[in-house]
Design a protein around this nucleic acid. Structure first.
Lengths: 229, 229, 229, 229
DNA sequence: TATGAATGAGCTTTCATTCAT
DNA sequence: TATGAATGAAAGCTCATTCAT
């Protein structure tokens, strides 16, 4: 079942804030501010954070903060933008191609595992962001819309591609694709939510082990048995 | 796989706020206030809600609000308390007994379906609560502790009982029980989160259909194949 | 210098609240309320006291409190009224007559001593009142007027009578009478203020000793008499 | 009896708020605020004063007020601090040296007179402060402690020095020094309390005349000196 | 008469945001 | 450009007082 897989520690993946091109146009000052904001907001939430503290954390005055980001909400959005673009791009897309190109040797299992691994690693690396910021963000219409329109479709279509490819190879039971995607995503998201919110309750088994188990359960259900019962 | 099931519309189940005994000791005024608070906080979140607005929504003065609930946080907790006690009691426990007593005829499948059905119906009926309040609540240590200590263990042990019974009947593949439980819960929670947060994105298929699909996938994975493929 | 005088302990004099006729028209309920109010206000001051607490201390509802005293200030005034009438009547007047009738044997010295003794005993017995209530009360115009118009003149004229009598007997240097009265009163009031506000700073010598010293100095001066003259 | 003394009008002495070095570190804005606070609090007392009014009186917003003084109590303390430091410093100490250095020519009488003069002038100049603020302040433990620990001992020891010097020169009757000090202070404090609280009642004689009388009585007693002794 | 419940008016304090320098 | 200083607009909470029962 296991993988004997590459990554030593998922949390060591090089996910860092502001290293992709979608952030190119930020000044160093803005970068500092966003990093400070991330620190503060992660710890205290959006409403719980004070612009004064963010400014101090960044070593500038509040006036400067507001010259760079016209409102507090704008800070949150600026913080989320690169994150969201990161969430949906690299591996997500890469994985799809990987799947399509790698058409032999348990490809679906490996692909799903890799997708999970990658996304979970991203969330672990961005723990503070996902744990707090995203929750905060969901309450703000602007941001929820952003996610709804830009992120969710991308994710869905990426995963759907993977499943399409697998189904084309006969690896999948006949089932509604959207539902299957949703269940896959539900599993990952639910796992993340649970493990972030109540880590103690969930025991100490590693992400790797859990990923193996989740993929195992998902796969063998997805692939089969509907006829057997 | 099929449904042939009773409930036409899950959202018509009679889950209502404050109808269980754990709330008997609320005055009508307090009930009004909590209902108003639920409305406001659901729409605007905890920090985003103003006591003044809650009071107005309930048709009383702020002073009256604070005479009934000494702090704003206390309102949130009073709101959550009956909800949490409802989450973990009725069907959750009932299901367990059901499983243990019904030892023939696809019992696990039906039990899991029923648990999902029941919990999802509860969440649908309490939509506002889950959609916002619970998310809000999680940020407050007092409430997170409450959930962590009182709710999570109950839920886990209830589901574990079901699985134990199934395993005793040979219906389950050999797997770490806690992980399996977690995946089951992850699936449900992830589904709820997704469907509440981004309903449009997820299509319009009914909860019933989704439940069938989820159970199907979960079961056939859980039950088998780990030796196969 | 000393007196070998009667009173064992000044603080045992029977000054009690509400035992004089000026209070006859209070109902028992009102008496309870005033006693409760005295306790609370003495401890916390006027502004610091809550009508709620006073009512609870008296074992009645706030509504009842307000049925008996239409405003909070009215409570304070009701509290002060019997006190003030006590301050200026009994011994004050008695002393005057005493002086006038006792025209032999160091009368002035003894009279002053007795006045001091009596007033100090009263203040000691009513410690809470003087210590806090009076200070509070002075801030309220209504009460300051009450004192200014009813109490101060009485006190002055009483002491003036004593001095007049002494002067008639040649016991007094020629001096402005009002000034002398004021200095006498200043001495007593200053002593009380000091000893109530900063008791530790003033050492532990008894009122009796201090009274002797004060009378001694008043009569003969710092430079005079104790043995030197 | 009289003095032929310098000061025409005691109240013209240059005691002003915030002109000593202990206040150097106040910004002009803070100075404005404290002056406004003094005006308002003098008129209405501490509890009776509204931060809103203080701010308006100073011509700034409440927000500005609270940026300068983090709490309302802090305003009171800032107001009292320079006052208290003034009370105990200049002449108080100077007088001591004066006494010790001036060892001939009615030194005690003149010294006491000068101390009284100086302190009374200070209180007159700071009338509003003493009349209300100090009374208010005494109710706050922090401030009472401040006075008890910093001010009272200084005052006592200063006056004691004067008396010690006089006694060394044989100008004093043998008496307990602390008691004598207390009586001296009682006289001054009582005089101030009376004259501030009930000025009309006390006639219109000037401070100078009263000081002469008080010193006369303190030194020689009611019975003494004016033509007798 | 006594009260539980209600409240208007107000409190101190906070904070995102602005602006003169 | 950067900021110290200022602030309007609340926010949560309190309290003396009222009133229907």
């Amino acid at each position: 079942m296991s993988v004997g897989n590459s990554e030593k520690d998922l949390s060591e993946r090089p996910w860092r804030l502001f290293d992709d091109e979608s952030v190119k146009d930020l000044t160093p000052r803005q970068r500092d501010l966003l990093e400070a904001a991330l620190r503060v907001m992660s710890a205290k939430g959006f409403d719980g954070s004070r612009t004064r503290e963010i400014a101090k954390e960044a070593g500038v005055s509040e006036a400067t903060l507001f010259k760079n980001f016209p409102t507090k909400l704008e800070i949150l959005m600026a913080l989320l933008r690169p994150f969201l673009s990161t969430v949906i791009r690299p591996t997500m897309i890469a994985s799809v191609k990987q799947v399509i190109e790698a058409h032999k040797g348990a490809p679906l299992e490996e692909t799903l595992r890799e997708i999970m691994r990658d996304r979970i690693a991203l969330f672990r690396a961005r723990g503070p962001l996902i744990k707090t910021l995203l929750l905060e963000a969901i309450r703000h219409t602007e941001i929820r819309d952003m996610i709804q329109k830009q992120v969710v479709p991308e994710i869905f279509s990426a995963v759907e591609s993977v499943l399409d490819a697998a189904q084309a190879r006969g690896e999948l039971a006949q089932r509604d694709r959207r539902t299957t995607v949703r269940i896959f995503l539900s599993t990952v998201i639910g796992y993340l939510a649970l493990s972030e919110s109540f880590p103690e309750q969930l025991g100490a088994s590693s992400d790797e082990v859990e990923i193996d188990a989740m993929v195992g359960i998902l796969l063998h259900g997805i692939q089969g048995r509907s006829e057997k019962t």
